[in-house]
Design a binder for these strands. Structure first.
Lengths: 228, 228
DNA sequence: CTATGATTCAAACGAACGTATGAATCATAG
DNA sequence: CTATGATTCATACGTTCGTTTGAATCATAG
Protein backbone atom coordinates (compact mmCIF):
# COMPACT_ATOMS: atom_id res chain seq x y z
CA UNK A 1 0.00 0.00 0.00
CA UNK A 2 1.05 3.54 -0.70
CA UNK A 3 0.76 6.34 1.78
CA UNK A 4 2.35 9.71 2.44
CA UNK A 5 0.06 12.33 3.97
CA UNK A 6 1.38 15.11 1.85
CA UNK A 7 2.22 17.58 4.59
CA UNK A 8 3.47 20.26 2.28
CA UNK A 9 0.10 20.99 0.67
CA UNK A 10 -1.63 20.93 4.04
CA UNK A 11 0.81 23.40 5.54
CA UNK A 12 0.67 25.72 2.56
CA UNK A 13 -3.11 25.79 2.82
CA UNK A 14 -2.99 26.43 6.56
CA UNK A 15 -0.48 29.25 6.14
CA UNK A 16 -2.50 30.94 3.42
CA UNK A 17 -5.75 30.52 5.35
CA UNK A 18 -4.17 31.93 8.49
CA UNK A 19 -3.00 35.01 6.67
CA UNK A 20 -6.22 35.58 4.75
CA UNK A 21 -8.54 34.93 7.69
CA UNK A 22 -6.45 37.45 9.60
CA UNK A 23 -6.71 40.03 6.85
CA UNK A 24 -10.31 39.61 5.72
CA UNK A 25 -12.08 37.53 8.37
CA UNK A 26 -13.66 34.12 8.04
CA UNK A 27 -16.72 35.04 6.03
CA UNK A 28 -14.72 37.53 3.99
CA UNK A 29 -12.25 34.93 2.76
CA UNK A 30 -13.16 32.53 -0.04
CA UNK A 31 -11.80 29.09 -0.73
CA UNK A 32 -10.58 30.33 -4.09
CA UNK A 33 -8.52 33.06 -2.45
CA UNK A 34 -6.97 30.53 -0.10
CA UNK A 35 -6.14 27.92 -2.71
CA UNK A 36 -4.95 30.66 -5.04
CA UNK A 37 -2.53 32.09 -2.53
CA UNK A 38 -1.37 28.61 -1.53
CA UNK A 39 -0.94 27.63 -5.19
CA UNK A 40 -2.92 24.44 -4.77
CA UNK A 41 -6.00 23.11 -6.48
CA UNK A 42 -9.38 24.34 -5.30
CA UNK A 43 -10.47 20.87 -4.29
CA UNK A 44 -7.41 20.38 -2.07
CA UNK A 45 -9.02 22.05 0.92
CA UNK A 46 -12.01 19.73 0.95
CA UNK A 47 -9.75 16.76 0.32
CA UNK A 48 -7.39 17.54 3.19
CA UNK A 49 -9.73 19.21 5.69
CA UNK A 50 -13.27 18.31 4.67
CA UNK A 51 -14.80 21.76 4.77
CA UNK A 52 -14.07 25.44 5.26
CA UNK A 53 -15.19 25.24 8.89
CA UNK A 54 -12.86 22.34 9.60
CA UNK A 55 -10.05 24.27 7.96
CA UNK A 56 -10.67 27.23 10.24
CA UNK A 57 -10.60 24.96 13.29
CA UNK A 58 -7.37 23.37 12.14
CA UNK A 59 -5.79 26.80 11.64
CA UNK A 60 -6.45 27.49 15.30
CA UNK A 61 -5.69 24.06 16.65
CA UNK A 62 -2.26 24.10 15.08
CA UNK A 63 -1.29 27.16 17.13
CA UNK A 64 -3.48 26.99 20.22
CA UNK A 65 -2.42 23.51 21.25
CA UNK A 66 1.14 24.66 21.57
CA UNK A 67 0.24 27.99 23.15
CA UNK A 68 -1.94 26.52 25.85
CA UNK A 69 0.54 23.79 26.66
CA UNK A 70 3.21 26.45 26.94
CA UNK A 71 0.98 28.41 29.29
CA UNK A 72 0.62 25.34 31.46
CA UNK A 73 4.37 24.79 31.45
CA UNK A 74 5.05 28.39 32.48
CA UNK A 75 2.59 28.18 35.34
CA UNK A 76 4.07 24.85 36.40
CA UNK A 77 7.50 26.44 36.56
CA UNK A 78 6.31 29.44 38.54
CA UNK A 79 4.43 27.25 41.00
CA UNK A 80 7.37 24.93 41.45
CA UNK A 81 9.55 27.97 42.08
CA UNK A 82 7.07 29.32 44.63
CA UNK A 83 6.80 25.99 46.39
CA UNK A 84 3.30 26.00 47.84
CA UNK A 85 2.68 29.70 48.46
CA UNK A 86 0.43 31.66 46.16
CA UNK A 87 1.89 33.18 43.02
CA UNK A 88 2.24 36.90 42.46
CA UNK A 89 -0.36 38.40 40.11
CA UNK A 90 2.45 39.57 37.86
CA UNK A 91 3.60 35.98 37.41
CA UNK A 92 0.12 34.81 36.47
CA UNK A 93 -0.38 37.67 34.04
CA UNK A 94 3.00 36.93 32.53
CA UNK A 95 2.18 33.26 32.20
CA UNK A 96 -1.03 33.89 30.35
CA UNK A 97 -0.55 37.11 28.42
CA UNK A 98 3.22 37.24 28.32
CA UNK A 99 3.37 33.77 26.81
CA UNK A 100 0.85 34.86 24.23
CA UNK A 101 2.72 38.00 23.31
CA UNK A 102 6.02 36.22 23.05
CA UNK A 103 4.50 34.22 20.20
CA UNK A 104 4.73 37.37 18.12
CA UNK A 105 8.46 36.91 17.72
CA UNK A 106 8.18 33.19 17.11
CA UNK A 107 7.53 32.67 13.42
CA UNK A 108 7.56 28.88 13.83
CA UNK A 109 4.37 29.20 15.84
CA UNK A 110 2.55 31.67 13.64
CA UNK A 111 4.13 34.89 14.83
CA UNK A 112 2.29 38.14 14.55
CA UNK A 113 -0.07 36.83 11.88
CA UNK A 114 -1.69 34.26 14.12
CA UNK A 115 -1.80 36.64 17.06
CA UNK A 116 -3.73 39.18 15.04
CA UNK A 117 -6.04 36.48 13.77
CA UNK A 118 -6.68 35.32 17.31
CA UNK A 119 -7.31 38.84 18.52
CA UNK A 120 -9.86 39.45 15.83
CA UNK A 121 -11.56 36.11 16.17
CA UNK A 122 -12.30 36.51 19.86
CA UNK A 123 -14.98 38.99 18.85
CA UNK A 124 -16.05 37.03 15.77
CA UNK A 125 -19.72 36.35 15.58
CA UNK A 126 -19.85 32.86 14.03
CA UNK A 127 -21.28 30.34 16.41
CA UNK A 128 -19.04 27.43 15.51
CA UNK A 129 -15.90 29.49 16.15
CA UNK A 130 -17.08 30.60 19.57
CA UNK A 131 -17.93 27.11 20.72
CA UNK A 132 -14.69 25.77 19.31
CA UNK A 133 -12.56 28.36 21.08
CA UNK A 134 -14.45 27.95 24.34
CA UNK A 135 -13.75 24.22 24.25
CA UNK A 136 -10.12 24.70 23.25
CA UNK A 137 -9.50 27.23 26.01
CA UNK A 138 -11.41 25.65 28.85
CA UNK A 139 -8.69 23.78 30.78
CA UNK A 140 -6.07 26.53 30.67
CA UNK A 141 -8.69 29.14 31.56
CA UNK A 142 -9.80 27.14 34.55
CA UNK A 143 -6.26 26.75 35.78
CA UNK A 144 -5.40 30.44 35.49
CA UNK A 145 -8.61 31.56 37.12
CA UNK A 146 -7.87 29.33 40.08
CA UNK A 147 -4.35 30.72 40.30
CA UNK A 148 -5.74 34.26 40.38
CA UNK A 149 -8.30 33.34 43.05
CA UNK A 150 -5.46 32.08 45.23
CA UNK A 151 -3.23 35.04 44.47
CA UNK A 152 -5.94 37.56 45.33
CA UNK A 153 -7.97 35.98 48.14
CA UNK A 154 -9.35 39.31 49.31
CA UNK A 155 -10.87 40.13 45.89
CA UNK A 156 -14.34 38.68 45.13
CA UNK A 157 -14.17 35.96 42.50
CA UNK A 158 -16.70 37.66 40.24
CA UNK A 159 -14.48 40.73 40.22
CA UNK A 160 -11.47 38.70 39.20
CA UNK A 161 -13.36 37.04 36.37
CA UNK A 162 -14.42 40.41 35.05
CA UNK A 163 -10.89 41.76 35.21
CA UNK A 164 -9.58 38.71 33.45
CA UNK A 165 -12.07 39.50 30.74
CA UNK A 166 -10.97 43.13 30.56
CA UNK A 167 -7.36 42.03 30.29
CA UNK A 168 -8.24 39.72 27.43
CA UNK A 169 -9.86 42.60 25.63
CA UNK A 170 -6.99 45.00 26.09
CA UNK A 171 -4.52 42.38 24.92
CA UNK A 172 -6.62 41.36 21.98
CA UNK A 173 -6.78 44.94 20.78
CA UNK A 174 -3.14 45.59 21.41
CA UNK A 175 -2.37 42.74 19.05
CA UNK A 176 -5.11 42.94 16.46
CA UNK A 177 -4.75 46.64 16.16
CA UNK A 178 -1.39 47.48 14.81
CA UNK A 179 -3.78 48.78 12.19
CA UNK A 180 -6.60 49.76 14.50
CA UNK A 181 -4.14 51.90 16.38
CA UNK A 182 -4.31 54.31 13.48
CA UNK A 183 -7.78 55.03 14.74
CA UNK A 184 -6.36 56.46 17.94
CA UNK A 185 -3.33 58.17 16.53
CA UNK A 186 -1.92 59.12 13.20
CA UNK A 187 1.47 58.17 14.55
CA UNK A 188 2.87 61.54 13.73
CA UNK A 189 4.29 61.21 17.21
CA UNK A 190 8.04 60.76 17.08
CA UNK A 191 8.25 57.07 17.81
CA UNK A 192 10.43 53.97 17.68
CA UNK A 193 10.41 51.87 14.54
CA UNK A 194 8.03 48.96 14.17
CA UNK A 195 10.23 46.10 15.33
CA UNK A 196 11.25 48.06 18.38
CA UNK A 197 7.61 48.95 18.90
CA UNK A 198 6.78 45.29 19.38
CA UNK A 199 9.53 44.84 21.95
CA UNK A 200 8.17 47.75 23.92
CA UNK A 201 4.57 46.62 23.61
CA UNK A 202 5.01 43.73 26.03
CA UNK A 203 6.16 45.72 29.08
CA UNK A 204 3.70 48.48 28.22
CA UNK A 205 0.77 46.14 28.11
CA UNK A 206 1.95 44.27 31.21
CA UNK A 207 2.05 47.48 33.22
CA UNK A 208 -1.42 48.37 32.06
CA UNK A 209 -2.88 44.94 32.77
CA UNK A 210 -1.37 44.75 36.25
CA UNK A 211 -2.51 48.27 37.02
CA UNK A 212 -6.04 47.31 36.06
CA UNK A 213 -5.95 43.99 37.85
CA UNK A 214 -4.80 45.56 41.10
CA UNK A 215 -6.94 48.68 40.91
CA UNK A 216 -9.05 49.60 43.95
CA UNK A 217 -12.34 47.78 43.97
CA UNK A 218 -15.26 49.76 42.61
CA UNK A 219 -17.92 50.89 45.02
CA UNK A 220 -21.29 50.08 43.53
CA UNK A 221 -23.25 53.32 43.21
CA UNK A 222 -26.61 52.88 41.45
CA UNK A 223 -27.08 56.65 41.09
CA UNK A 224 -23.97 57.55 39.12
CA UNK A 225 -24.47 60.64 36.98
CA UNK A 226 -22.54 62.62 34.46
CA UNK A 227 -22.47 66.43 34.74
CA UNK A 228 -25.11 68.54 32.97
CA UNK B 1 -44.88 67.54 -6.66
CA UNK B 2 -45.18 64.69 -4.25
CA UNK B 3 -42.59 63.93 -1.61
CA UNK B 4 -42.43 62.16 1.71
CA UNK B 5 -39.13 60.44 2.50
CA UNK B 6 -40.71 57.43 4.03
CA UNK B 7 -38.83 57.36 7.30
CA UNK B 8 -40.55 54.29 8.63
CA UNK B 9 -39.07 51.88 6.09
CA UNK B 10 -35.64 53.44 6.50
CA UNK B 11 -35.71 53.08 10.27
CA UNK B 12 -36.99 49.54 10.14
CA UNK B 13 -34.15 48.59 7.81
CA UNK B 14 -31.58 50.30 10.01
CA UNK B 15 -32.89 48.57 13.13
CA UNK B 16 -32.84 45.15 11.52
CA UNK B 17 -29.40 45.73 10.02
CA UNK B 18 -28.03 46.90 13.37
CA UNK B 19 -29.27 43.79 15.12
CA UNK B 20 -28.16 41.37 12.41
CA UNK B 21 -24.74 42.94 11.87
CA UNK B 22 -24.29 42.69 15.61
CA UNK B 23 -25.28 39.04 15.68
CA UNK B 24 -23.59 37.73 12.53
CA UNK B 25 -21.14 40.38 11.38
CA UNK B 26 -21.12 42.38 8.17
CA UNK B 27 -20.09 39.66 5.74
CA UNK B 28 -22.20 37.12 7.58
CA UNK B 29 -25.42 39.07 7.11
CA UNK B 30 -27.28 39.02 3.79
CA UNK B 31 -29.58 41.64 2.35
CA UNK B 32 -32.34 39.06 2.31
CA UNK B 33 -32.00 38.48 6.04
CA UNK B 34 -32.16 42.20 6.68
CA UNK B 35 -35.16 42.92 4.47
CA UNK B 36 -36.85 39.80 5.76
CA UNK B 37 -36.50 40.80 9.39
CA UNK B 38 -37.54 44.36 8.59
CA UNK B 39 -40.52 43.11 6.57
CA UNK B 40 -39.68 45.25 3.57
CA UNK B 41 -39.00 44.43 -0.04
CA UNK B 42 -35.53 43.27 -0.98
CA UNK B 43 -35.01 46.24 -3.28
CA UNK B 44 -35.79 48.72 -0.52
CA UNK B 45 -32.23 48.73 0.82
CA UNK B 46 -30.71 49.71 -2.50
CA UNK B 47 -33.48 52.24 -3.06
CA UNK B 48 -33.01 53.97 0.29
CA UNK B 49 -29.30 53.50 0.89
CA UNK B 50 -27.75 52.65 -2.44
CA UNK B 51 -25.70 49.63 -1.37
CA UNK B 52 -24.93 47.31 1.50
CA UNK B 53 -21.79 49.27 2.33
CA UNK B 54 -23.69 52.53 2.51
CA UNK B 55 -26.27 50.87 4.73
CA UNK B 56 -23.54 49.77 7.12
CA UNK B 57 -22.16 53.29 7.25
CA UNK B 58 -25.60 54.73 7.93
CA UNK B 59 -26.15 52.24 10.75
CA UNK B 60 -23.06 53.66 12.41
CA UNK B 61 -23.57 57.30 11.53
CA UNK B 62 -27.03 57.27 13.09
CA UNK B 63 -25.55 56.37 16.48
CA UNK B 64 -22.00 57.71 16.37
CA UNK B 65 -22.96 61.26 15.49
CA UNK B 66 -24.97 61.53 18.68
CA UNK B 67 -22.41 59.64 20.78
CA UNK B 68 -19.46 61.76 19.74
CA UNK B 69 -21.38 65.01 20.16
CA UNK B 70 -22.37 63.85 23.60
CA UNK B 71 -18.74 63.11 24.37
CA UNK B 72 -17.85 66.64 23.34
CA UNK B 73 -20.62 68.06 25.52
CA UNK B 74 -19.49 66.08 28.56
CA UNK B 75 -15.92 67.26 28.14
CA UNK B 76 -17.12 70.83 27.66
CA UNK B 77 -19.01 70.61 30.94
CA UNK B 78 -16.06 69.16 32.84
CA UNK B 79 -13.68 71.78 31.45
CA UNK B 80 -16.05 74.61 32.24
CA UNK B 81 -16.36 73.23 35.76
CA UNK B 82 -12.58 73.01 36.11
CA UNK B 83 -12.08 76.53 34.79
CA UNK B 84 -8.67 76.40 33.17
CA UNK B 85 -6.87 73.78 35.23
CA UNK B 86 -6.30 70.31 33.82
CA UNK B 87 -9.03 67.72 34.22
CA UNK B 88 -8.67 64.63 36.36
CA UNK B 89 -8.01 61.42 34.42
CA UNK B 90 -11.17 59.96 35.92
CA UNK B 91 -13.20 62.74 34.35
CA UNK B 92 -11.70 62.17 30.93
CA UNK B 93 -12.21 58.44 31.14
CA UNK B 94 -15.78 59.00 32.24
CA UNK B 95 -16.40 61.42 29.39
CA UNK B 96 -15.21 59.00 26.76
CA UNK B 97 -15.98 55.54 28.08
CA UNK B 98 -18.67 56.38 30.60
CA UNK B 99 -20.68 58.21 27.95
CA UNK B 100 -20.33 55.19 25.72
CA UNK B 101 -21.43 52.75 28.38
CA UNK B 102 -24.39 54.84 29.39
CA UNK B 103 -25.73 54.32 25.87
CA UNK B 104 -26.45 50.74 26.91
CA UNK B 105 -29.46 51.85 28.93
CA UNK B 106 -30.64 54.28 26.27
CA UNK B 107 -32.77 52.38 23.82
CA UNK B 108 -33.49 55.51 21.80
CA UNK B 109 -29.83 55.58 20.82
CA UNK B 110 -29.39 51.94 20.05
CA UNK B 111 -28.88 50.59 23.52
CA UNK B 112 -26.91 47.43 24.08
CA UNK B 113 -27.40 46.24 20.53
CA UNK B 114 -25.45 49.09 19.00
CA UNK B 115 -22.78 48.93 21.68
CA UNK B 116 -22.13 45.30 20.96
CA UNK B 117 -22.05 45.99 17.25
CA UNK B 118 -19.54 48.76 17.80
CA UNK B 119 -17.39 46.59 20.01
CA UNK B 120 -17.23 43.88 17.42
CA UNK B 121 -16.68 46.17 14.51
CA UNK B 122 -13.60 47.81 15.97
CA UNK B 123 -11.75 44.61 15.17
CA UNK B 124 -13.57 44.03 11.90
CA UNK B 125 -11.31 43.45 8.97
CA UNK B 126 -13.16 45.20 6.13
CA UNK B 127 -11.19 48.12 4.83
CA UNK B 128 -14.13 50.44 4.17
CA UNK B 129 -15.38 50.07 7.75
CA UNK B 130 -11.99 50.88 9.21
CA UNK B 131 -11.52 54.00 7.14
CA UNK B 132 -15.08 55.08 7.82
CA UNK B 133 -14.72 54.70 11.58
CA UNK B 134 -11.35 56.41 11.60
CA UNK B 135 -12.84 59.41 9.84
CA UNK B 136 -15.93 59.44 12.05
CA UNK B 137 -13.87 59.29 15.24
CA UNK B 138 -11.06 61.64 14.37
CA UNK B 139 -12.18 64.93 15.98
CA UNK B 140 -13.37 63.47 19.27
CA UNK B 141 -10.29 61.28 19.49
CA UNK B 142 -8.02 64.26 18.97
CA UNK B 143 -9.80 66.23 21.65
CA UNK B 144 -9.62 63.47 24.27
CA UNK B 145 -6.00 62.71 23.56
CA UNK B 146 -5.14 66.36 24.11
CA UNK B 147 -7.09 66.33 27.36
CA UNK B 148 -5.14 63.31 28.57
CA UNK B 149 -1.82 64.90 27.58
CA UNK B 150 -2.68 67.90 29.75
CA UNK B 151 -3.98 65.77 32.61
CA UNK B 152 -0.86 63.60 32.69
CA UNK B 153 2.01 65.92 31.72
CA UNK B 154 4.62 63.68 33.33
CA UNK B 155 3.64 60.66 31.19
CA UNK B 156 5.19 60.41 27.69
CA UNK B 157 2.62 61.01 24.99
CA UNK B 158 3.33 57.73 23.24
CA UNK B 159 2.58 55.95 26.48
CA UNK B 160 -0.76 57.70 26.81
CA UNK B 161 -1.74 56.82 23.27
CA UNK B 162 -1.00 53.18 23.90
CA UNK B 163 -2.98 53.16 27.11
CA UNK B 164 -5.89 54.84 25.38
CA UNK B 165 -5.74 51.99 22.93
CA UNK B 166 -5.67 49.39 25.70
CA UNK B 167 -8.68 51.04 27.32
CA UNK B 168 -10.55 50.90 24.04
CA UNK B 169 -9.86 47.20 23.80
CA UNK B 170 -10.93 46.39 27.33
CA UNK B 171 -14.13 48.38 26.89
CA UNK B 172 -14.88 46.89 23.52
CA UNK B 173 -14.63 43.40 24.94
CA UNK B 174 -16.57 44.24 28.03
CA UNK B 175 -19.42 45.24 25.79
CA UNK B 176 -19.17 42.87 22.85
CA UNK B 177 -18.63 39.93 25.08
CA UNK B 178 -21.66 39.31 27.17
CA UNK B 179 -21.32 36.18 25.09
CA UNK B 180 -17.56 36.05 24.89
CA UNK B 181 -17.47 36.14 28.66
CA UNK B 182 -18.63 32.55 28.60
CA UNK B 183 -15.18 31.85 27.29
CA UNK B 184 -13.67 32.99 30.57
CA UNK B 185 -16.27 31.64 32.92
CA UNK B 186 -19.20 29.33 32.85
CA UNK B 187 -20.94 31.72 35.18
CA UNK B 188 -21.54 29.01 37.69
CA UNK B 189 -20.37 31.72 40.05
CA UNK B 190 -23.21 32.93 42.18
CA UNK B 191 -23.92 36.23 40.51
CA UNK B 192 -26.34 39.08 40.11
CA UNK B 193 -29.00 38.88 37.37
CA UNK B 194 -28.29 40.29 33.95
CA UNK B 195 -29.84 43.76 34.28
CA UNK B 196 -28.03 44.30 37.54
CA UNK B 197 -24.89 42.98 35.92
CA UNK B 198 -24.93 45.86 33.46
CA UNK B 199 -25.30 48.43 36.24
CA UNK B 200 -22.29 46.98 37.96
CA UNK B 201 -20.26 46.72 34.77
CA UNK B 202 -19.73 50.46 34.51
CA UNK B 203 -17.99 51.03 37.87
CA UNK B 204 -16.11 47.77 37.44
CA UNK B 205 -14.76 48.75 34.07
CA UNK B 206 -14.03 52.29 35.22
CA UNK B 207 -11.89 51.03 38.09
CA UNK B 208 -10.02 48.75 35.76
CA UNK B 209 -9.42 51.44 33.14
CA UNK B 210 -8.22 54.00 35.65
CA UNK B 211 -5.98 51.44 37.31
CA UNK B 212 -4.41 50.71 33.96
CA UNK B 213 -4.14 54.32 32.92
CA UNK B 214 -2.37 55.32 36.13
CA UNK B 215 -0.20 52.24 36.44
CA UNK B 216 3.54 52.74 37.03
CA UNK B 217 5.39 53.29 33.78
CA UNK B 218 7.07 50.20 32.38
CA UNK B 219 10.83 50.02 32.41
CA UNK B 220 12.02 48.88 29.02
CA UNK B 221 14.01 45.70 29.47
CA UNK B 222 15.09 44.13 26.18
CA UNK B 223 16.16 40.90 27.90
CA UNK B 224 12.94 39.89 29.60
CA UNK B 225 12.71 36.16 30.10
CA UNK B 226 10.19 33.67 31.32
CA UNK B 227 11.32 30.85 33.62
CA UNK B 228 12.36 27.61 31.90
C1' DC C 1 -60.43 64.27 -9.91
C1' DT C 2 -56.06 64.12 -12.16
C1' DA C 3 -51.23 64.33 -12.50
C1' DT C 4 -46.70 63.61 -10.48
C1' DG C 5 -43.19 61.94 -8.14
C1' DA C 6 -42.07 58.89 -4.20
C1' DT C 7 -42.19 54.28 -2.86
C1' DT C 8 -43.00 49.33 -3.16
C1' DC C 9 -43.03 45.12 -5.51
C1' DA C 10 -42.00 40.58 -8.03
C1' DA C 11 -38.74 38.96 -10.85
C1' DA C 12 -34.52 38.43 -12.82
C1' DC C 13 -29.39 39.36 -13.58
C1' DG C 14 -24.56 37.75 -13.59
C1' DA C 15 -21.12 36.69 -10.35
C1' DA C 16 -19.22 34.28 -6.66
C1' DC C 17 -19.81 31.01 -3.20
C1' DG C 18 -18.71 26.05 -0.89
C1' DT C 19 -18.74 21.53 -2.34
C1' DA C 20 -18.67 17.21 -5.19
C1' DT C 21 -17.14 14.24 -8.99
C1' DG C 22 -14.34 11.25 -11.72
C1' DA C 23 -10.44 10.97 -14.34
C1' DA C 24 -5.32 11.87 -14.44
C1' DT C 25 -1.03 11.78 -12.06
C1' DC C 26 2.12 10.59 -8.60
C1' DA C 27 4.89 7.83 -5.11
C1' DT C 28 5.82 3.73 -3.28
C1' DA C 29 5.30 -1.43 -1.90
C1' DG C 30 5.70 -5.89 -3.62
C1' DC D 1 8.09 -3.79 -13.69
C1' DT D 2 3.22 -3.58 -12.01
C1' DA D 3 -0.33 -2.58 -8.82
C1' DT D 4 -2.32 0.30 -5.33
C1' DG D 5 -3.69 3.90 -2.91
C1' DA D 6 -2.71 8.83 -2.09
C1' DT D 7 -2.99 13.12 -4.19
C1' DT D 8 -3.95 16.50 -7.77
C1' DC D 9 -6.62 18.31 -11.35
C1' DA D 10 -10.26 20.51 -14.44
C1' DT D 11 -14.84 20.99 -14.36
C1' DA D 12 -19.35 21.30 -12.93
C1' DC D 13 -23.28 21.43 -9.53
C1' DG D 14 -26.76 23.83 -7.01
C1' DT D 15 -27.18 27.99 -3.95
C1' DT D 16 -26.89 32.29 -2.49
C1' DC D 17 -25.05 36.66 -3.02
C1' DG D 18 -25.70 42.07 -4.03
C1' DT D 19 -27.81 44.62 -7.37
C1' DT D 20 -30.98 46.10 -11.19
C1' DT D 21 -35.19 46.62 -13.73
C1' DG D 22 -39.70 48.16 -15.01
C1' DA D 23 -44.19 47.95 -13.78
C1' DA D 24 -47.61 48.58 -9.88
C1' DT D 25 -49.08 51.23 -6.02
C1' DC D 26 -49.26 55.03 -3.01
C1' DA D 27 -49.69 59.93 -1.20
C1' DT D 28 -50.21 64.41 -2.17
C1' DA D 29 -50.27 69.01 -4.85
C1' DG D 30 -52.93 71.57 -7.99
Amino acid sequence: MAEARNVDTRERILDAAERLFMAHGYEGTSMRQITGEASVNLAAVNYHFGSKESLMQEVFRRRLDWLNEERMRVLDAYEKEAGGIALKPSQIVDGFFGTLLRMADDETHGGMTFLRLLGRTLTEPSEFIRTFLAHEYKPVMERYKEALFRALPEVPKAEIVWRFHFMLGATSYAIAGTDALRLVTDWQIEEEDSTDRLDRLVPRLMSFLLGGLRAPLPQYDPSAVNPK
